[in-house]
Structure formats: C-alpha cells, structure tokens
C-alpha cells in the first residue's frame, strides 16, 4: 500500500504527467481513498496553474534606457 509520504514524493511527476501507467494507477487509487492527499494534489495543481505564464512586470523605463545605452555603446565598439 502507498503511504501519504510516498504519494507526496511522486506528486510533482504525477502532476507533470511524467510517470508510467502502473504508478499512476496506484497514485490515483490513493487519492480516491485519502481525502487529504486529494486536496493537496488538487490545490497544488491549482497553484501551478495560477503561476503558469505569470508575466513579469515591464522593467522600469530608466533601467531600460540605461540597458539600451550600454548595449548601443557595445555594438558601436564592435563595428569599429
């Protein structure tokens, strides 16, 4: 029998669908019998979904300006 600890150890691969069918069946059986692990799996999945593709904030314009200046200087130096 799979323990909750065993289940948690496989949770990432389970959610990423990187496990074989046999292990998957065992894990799925565990969550039908263990409400705690079901909740953990479900809320971990939602956590990943919420973060996925979270775009970064644009960089501040002063930072952008200095970056582009430094780059242009570098590019000009290379052409000489």
């Amino acid at each position: 029998m799979l323990t909750c600890k065993d289940f948690l150890a496989e949770l990432s691969d389970y959610l990423d669908e990187r496990i074989d069918a046999e292990l998957r069946a065992k894990l799925e059986r565990h969550i039908t019998e263990c409400p705690n692990c079901w909740v953990i799996a479900d809320t971990t999945k939602k956590t990943i979904q919420i973060y996925k593709g979270m775009e970064p904030y644009p960089i501040p314009s002063d930072v952008e300006t200095r970056l582009m200046k430094a780059l242009e200087k570098k590019m000009a130096a290379k052409q000489r």
């Binding site: 948690l8 150890a9 949770l11 990432s12 953990i40 809320t43 971990t44 956590t47 990943i48």
Partner: peptide
C-alpha cells in the same frame, strides 16, 4: 516539489 508544496 518543495517549492510547489510551500506555495500551495
């Protein structure tokens, strides 16, 4: 795994 569980 740890990061995901902690964020969860």
């Amino acid at each position: 795994l740890r990061a995901r569980l902690q964020l969860r």
